[in-house]
Design a protein around this nucleic acid. Structure first.
Lengths: 334, 334
DNA sequence: AGCGCTCCCGTGAACGTTCACGGGAGCGCT
DNA sequence: AGCGCTCCCGTGAACGTTCACGGGAGCGCT
């Protein structure tokens, strides 16, 4: 047998093992899957042959015939942002308890990567959980009827199920706390998704107006610690009278904390800071971060649960939307 | 047509769509995969039928016939530990650029979960990258000839390829720096893997002996911030004369930093701290963490590269072992 | 009219595995 | 001897898709 140069090697199949061991493919299958109805010596001979040939079963052929494996795609912008990894941890745990597999895709928070991911994901998984920035119609055109659960975003059509984060009361409590502490110049470091202010910004505005204070002290920030620092500097340069900030999330808040220190502002004495998310990270910085906190692990787990509901054919309705509540947790920074 | 109660619904296949649209399965395939050789009206009719029936192609059947998708399993102990997510981020990025898919498994640092994962992973992926704590023989019995790349661990047999972290020089530099700063009671907060002291501990011991200082001031710590805090308290309670600590990793160091503050010890004045890993997290705490730093993203990317080499049939040898060097990066904490 | 070409569409085969079923060999019991 | 049972093992079919190939219809040109 001469190997043709450049020809890719043919895959070793169960039939090759069967031939090598002098048995049928069914006997090979029995040996490899620890089924009964096989002689001990035969089994060993088959196993040896399989090892010698470097045989590895095709998961596609196996999956085709026994339709029991469930694989879901988890799409998140960034693995370096603890919020998403905490959510992912919750989702992975919930998936594991169901025996589901999770393929993780990181989109680097870029629209083109998100599209690439959506393009490819549909042929790789049975359902999708994700944090998407593209429009619902675009999402629909890629997922084409595949079950999808959106995280932290309102599903406007009934096409998608979603897990919503309700922080309205929490943000109101945060602003009320700051006002009670004597602050009346409260800024916000927002994060714009899809070129529009966030819902968290809406909550902040409403709460500020309730207390009759200026709701316009808002600066947009990148979703990183550096972004938070830069945004705080910008805000304080323009409006030095600000004595407290509420931030879109904890990452931004931590960056603001660091920047305040660099600017010589003591937290919370000279500047109070309240974040959003309640990440574990907040307990590691100095002072510990006050935050409108939610259960990130539960968020991920709920998404998996909702997916299970969808897959069992219950469909989705407005009432199906699940909610995670975020509440004010006070620590050292405010 | 009466649906039998309890009978699971038969999967909708390409043939159902073909029948519904009044065409052959090949025409359906053409419509769905945007191939040519199909009339515009026909294509639309097929697409409508597919949508109406809720048809979704079987990835197994598709994968079986066109053998082009590559899926690798990434096994890490914990998604909540930034070290692993940074490595995972590097691996995901490298995999994406090759068009590979990555299934992530978190083992919660428990031996039984790790075994479960290994059990299940072999039928789900084409190759494995991971941070394992079980023995190589055990690993071999599960992976059975599948390509495996170990991260941050010496492969003792030639069966596995590995990406090693070389921090010997970095740790020596760290100890030298501390000694130069006048410290001669330097402790270590170690993390025991598989019930034996770590290699990092060996490096520390060697470096301490070079300077003729006590290398026995070692306490074992859990791989968490809380674990680091507890370990520091234990160490200082027993040996209050300690003025500097080197830690197994940055997470432990960050916990130690926080605990030092609680104990009223100013860092670095009363206690110098040097971690290991060089995580982004280190730049967020106060004071910023000095660390024997390595390129975690590169670590993940190298693992994927090594896997590519294995899969192209080059096999593995001792010389194939890839190395990431860790070097001392000084910041505020030492 | 005949030829070639383009545009569509369909049929058999193949991918690699497990399932369902059949059946032979050997043994013990009546 | 005949029967039933257990222990093994093998063959056809099926899973659901894409590939390779064949071929009809229609049109333009000579």
């Amino acid at each position: 047998m001469v190997s043709t140069p450049g020809a890719e090697p043919r895959r070793i199949t169960i039939n090759d093992v069967a031939r090598s061991a002098g048995v049928s493919r069914q006997t090979v299958s029995r040996a490899l899957n620890d089924k009964g109805e096989i002689d001990g010596d035969t089994k060993q001979r088959v196993l040896d042959a399989a090892r010698a040939l470097g045989y590895r079963p095709s998961r596609f052929a196996r999956g085709l015939v026994r339709q029991d494996t469930m694989t879901i795609g988890l799409v998140i912008p960034d693995l370096l942002n603890p919020f998403f990894t905490e959510v992912a941890a919750g989702a992975l745990e919930a998936a594991r308890s169901r025996g589901w597999h999770v393929v993780v895709y990181a989109t680097a928070d870029r629209a083109d990567e998100e599209r690439d991911t959506l393009q490819v994901i549909t042929s790789q998984v049975d359902a999708v959980i994700g944090y998407f920035s593209c429009s619902e119609s675009e999402l629909e055109s890629y997922t084409r009827g595949m079950p999808v659960v959106l995280i932290g975003r309102e599903g406007r059509s009934t096409r998608f199920s979603s897990i919503r984060i309700d922080g309205e009361q929490g943000v109101r409590a945060a602003v009320a706390h700051l006002v009670a502490e004597g602050h009346n110049r409260i800024g916000m470091l927002d994060h714009r998704t899809r070129a529009e202010p966030s819902i968290r910004h809406d909550w902040f505005t409403a709460a500020a107006r309730e207390h009759g204070i200026d709701a316009g002290l808002v600066v947009d920030a990148d979703q990183t610690a550096d972004g938070g620092g830069t945004a705080l500097r910008t805000l304080l340069a323009a409006r030095p009278e600000v004595t407290a900030v509420f931030t879109f999330n904890d990452i931004i808040a931590v960056g603001a904390l660091r920047e305040a220190r660099r600017l010589g502002r003591s937290v919370p004495r000279d500047l109070a800071v309240i974040g959003f998310d309640g990440l574990q990270l907040g307990a590691l910085v100095e002072p510990p971060l006050s935050s409108v906190a939610l259960d990130t692990r539960k968020l991920g787990a709920l998404a998996i649960e909702q997916l299970a509901r969808l897959l069992s054919g219950l469909g989705t309705s407005e009432a199906d939307d699940l909610i995670v509540h975020a509440e004010l947790h006070l620590s050292g920074s405010a």
